[in-house]
Design a binder for these strands. Sequence first.
DNA 1: AGCACGCCGACT
DNA 2: GTCGGCGTGCTC
Length: 733
Amino acid sequence: MILSVAIPIPLNHLFDYLPPDNCNLQQLKAGLRVKVPFGKQTKIAVLIKIKTGDECDISKLKQAEAILDAEPLLSSKDIQLLNWAKYYYHHPIGDVFISAFPTALRKGKSTEPKSSTYFQLTATGKAADDSLLHNAPKQLALLKFLKSQKNTLSNVEIATHFKLWRAPLKALINKDYVRTCNAPGISDQNSLITQQTSLTANAQQLTAIQSITSQLDQFAVYLLEGVTGSGKTEVYLQIIEKVLARNQQVLVLLPEITLTPQLEARFKQRFAVPIETYHSQHSESQRQSAWLAMQKGNSPIMLGTRSALFTPMPKAGLIILDEEHDASFKQQEGFRFSARDVAIVRAKMLNIPIILGSATPSLESLYNVDKKRYQLLRLPHRAGNATPPRLALLDIRNQSLQEGLSPQLIRDIQRTLAKKEQVLLFLNRRGFAPTLICHSCGWVAQCSRCDANLVVHYQQQKLRCHHCACEQALPRQCIACKSEELKPLGLGTERVESALHYLFPEHKSVRLDRDSTQRKGALDQHLAAINQGQVDIILGTQMLAKGHHFPNVTLVVLLDVDSGLFSIDFHAPERLAQLIIQVAGRAGRAEKKGRVIMQTRQPEHPLLNTLILHGYQAFAKAALAERKSAELPPYSYQALLRSTSHEKDSAFEFLLAVAELINSHTSNGTLVLGPVAAPMAKRAGQFRYQLLLQHKKRKQLHLLLNWLMPEILKLKQARKIRWSLDIDPIDLY
DNA sequence: AGCACGCCGACT
DNA sequence: GTCGGCGTGCTC
């Protein structure tokens, strides 16, 4: 018998081993982790196939060191999905398979909790002596709490609750859980769902809930388009309740931002079942226990980011992917999968529904609605009395600006402040100024390692590159001509902040960007101050755009909307429109009506006008029409080959060789665009080039790549540089 | 990806 | 005379 295993290295084939000594051959199943010798190292691999001895030459096979799991960690459905992903993304099999596991399990950690107390408790079925827990304050607190419930819990129940402590510690400490959970064991989930009062759904919410819950037993993709504040979460919660009642598991995927705690709180308030969370801020062991709780079917809900996508679920019933347009669902290095696209394939393989939620759906998803692949459900109204904000362009051509603020804008801000309402200013550029220029000779401070200007940071008295780790002291004299006429050029949040101080000296303003919130807890402090009304003007970058509620903000300003209009990337208009709507969503969420002002030097711009006059749907329609006439995705399919090297020529020559390879092969109609220098041709000392492949038929593009990938590995140019393949790239950058 | 082997420049 | 640079090749 031979074990074919996937090893996490950049080689696209399996490696064969003989089973380890004293191993029960009956227990060998795909999905087990195996420890194997590999060259001079040992690696953790995943068992993919079991072959009989006569399929290959046994004589030069090594023997595996150990089988690490008693039962497979991946089911055949999981393996099927990972195999699909490996083909679709043309990525090495071992890398793909290992990405399904939390890092602790990738390193070979045991799936058994190793606490000695745990074993004593499970072995004896008795509650432990307190003195055993002197090193484990959390366990001790839990045990003391459970013992205090003596009148409702038997000793065996105390031990069982305690046994489960790792994953749902908080849920256990919650009295509601203990009360509703007389016979613990997740198999009886119904008793764990709290019958708290859910909010009364409005007509649209009800339609959405009913459409989905009436067909929970089959695959379907629902696009839930809900404007900001329309109550998408309530729809999710009511549907999840139905899925839990069917004794099934739910995976909720969220963008990589700090929204998880808020949603987690809301879920915990609603459901008294264990709820797992899975994101990069958790420790390795926290992620392992969350993953295992789902994998064993012990927990019914997981809230997680992209990396939670492959978490095994023996009782999967529903996948929800919120903010589906968000770019963070695409992995941007290594195995570059789209969690949204793979989640849909997963739902299809499991024959369960998937809900994609967004206030600003991606153009691909709207296209799929058009093609009747997805079912559109709309929540067009804000909950309660809140009215949608009014959007307006403010022409700043020929206006004398004070640090980027036009006279009319300053008057509008003053009026809003006079009404004791808050103002939110958005500028997606941190630092004081993006450029430092010599007024005397024209010298510009540039990064030595990147094709980028250094950004002036006045508070720190530094010039910093926003693309690598480079920084230097702010010079007093021009490096070229020694003149002292150095001028900061352009606008960053730091500069606007100082302008706000002298324009509105009576009013408190706060700046929220990566620099001002680096200190742990700083962001929360600022947000608390804002919500307590201690702040009049909120100024910030991208991080303001998502999720936060500022109920007293009635004026939202995008200081410079033009910078988003000139990108070479065809995704840029879509991104900008989504950003505008998301930022606008921060205004007037309570009773007060909100307005949004966008400063522009392009007041006639068709995209901006369509968005403002006719809304996001109309914008999306127009943008899709443009994509269609240009034969861009989703009307064609793309794959992007990137190369980087510290030598300019070798990065270029590699892609040139690839292009020649394709062109000399057969022309199956694949467009070969490039190689060209990346938009930022040099970054952190590395030269960057790219080659774009495009075809109207996905199938044809993938056939070409099937042939091309092994050929690339044979190219001698490939060994000198680093390269990667990105299927369905979302930024050509 | 690692980690070896192997053949050429600056050092005790 | 060695130490060590990274080009090339292999991993069941």
